[in-house]
Computed example of a mutant assay.
Amino acid sequence: MSTSGDNPYASPEGTNYEPQQPTGSEAVVPRTSVDYMETLGDVFNNPNWFVNILLAGIAIIIPIIGGMVALGYVAEIIGARAYGRIKTYPDFDFNRFVEYLTRGFWMFLVTFLTSLCLAPLGMVAGGIMGALSATENEVLVLIGFVIYFFSIFAINLLSFFLMCPLVIRAGMLNDFAGAFDFGWIMDFIKKMWVEQLIGGILLYIFAMFIMLVGCMALCVGYIPAAGVVVIMSSLFITQLYQVYIHRGGQGLPFKEAKKL
């Protein structure tokens, strides 16, 4: 199932070479720009692409822990590709289920907490719209709707910009507290916000189309379609991280996943 055994950093040529874990920005393979179409095409460059998308899709539908496992696999892809340890991306290996779950737990926790912190802003916007709607004044109702619409848009945009660096830090460092380095997060957003915005829009369109095609295949295609979206998103985040390093960003070590 996995061409590299339990080590996602093993040489793709199958030798006994076992590289050291990367320790900083000097270990990252930088790139000058993000290739948005490559994020989709590279999904199918792995010889075992069908098995990988199928297993990733199955993992994500597992109740409660499935999303965490998928996030852990996302981090494994980022670590392997960003540090040049493999030419495509590591195979999804159920023998590494616990490692995926452990790493993904921290990634889920930071995204959940961030969403929880931003939720009150949406509630305030909804309250304003409700209060203005209660006046039954058409002008005020319209103003309330506009305020709510743009507030939700701004909150979602802020959430999107924050989630990417948080996911990278939590996944690479395999840690909760270490994810919240706001200096690093703001530096990442400052350097990468244009690519985040463009890539986010394009990936959303790609994902919607892929999931629609999957659902049209008697819904059975939903599972591999979800796997494609997981791997595609991982490859996009990897490119963002590599471009960030090229632009002078600080690299991160890829720490071993340990039991909770």
Rank of each mutant, 00 (worst) to 15 (best):
M1G: 15
M1K: 03
M1C: 13
T3A: 13
P8L: 01
P12L: 05
E13S: 12
G14P: 14
G14C: 08
T15D: 13
Y17Q: 02
Q21P: 15
S25V: 14
R31W: 01
S33M: 09
S33F: 14
Y36N: 05
Y36M: 10
L40S: 03
F44M: 02
N45G: 13
P47W: 05
W49E: 10
L55S: 04
G57R: 06
G57S: 08
I58G: 07
I58K: 01
I65G: 00
I65S: 00
G66T: 06
G66S: 09
G67V: 09
M68D: 08
A70T: 13
Y73V: 02
A75H: 12
E76K: 09
A80H: 07
G84I: 12
R85C: 02
I86S: 04
I86Y: 10
T88K: 06
Y89D: 05
D93H: 14
V98S: 11
E99F: 06
Y100W: 03
T102G: 11
R103Q: 06
F105P: 11
W106D: 05
M107V: 15
F112Q: 11
S115Q: 06
L118P: 06
P120D: 01
L121H: 04
G122T: 00
A125L: 09
L132F: 10
Y148A: 13
L158P: 05
F160K: 03
M163N: 11
V167E: 03
V167Q: 10
I168L: 10
N174T: 14
G178V: 02
G183E: 10
W184P: 00
I185F: 13
M186I: 02
D187P: 02
D187L: 03
F188Y: 15
W193I: 00
V194S: 10
G199D: 11
L203Q: 13
I210Q: 09
G214I: 08
M216F: 14
A217P: 08
L218E: 04
G221V: 14
I223F: 06
A225T: 04
A225M: 10
V228D: 10
V229F: 10
M232L: 14
S233K: 07
S234P: 14
L235T: 07
I237W: 06
L240S: 05
Y241E: 00
Y241T: 10
V243C: 07
H246L: 01
H246P: 04
L252F: 07
P253F: 00
E256Y: 04
L260E: 04
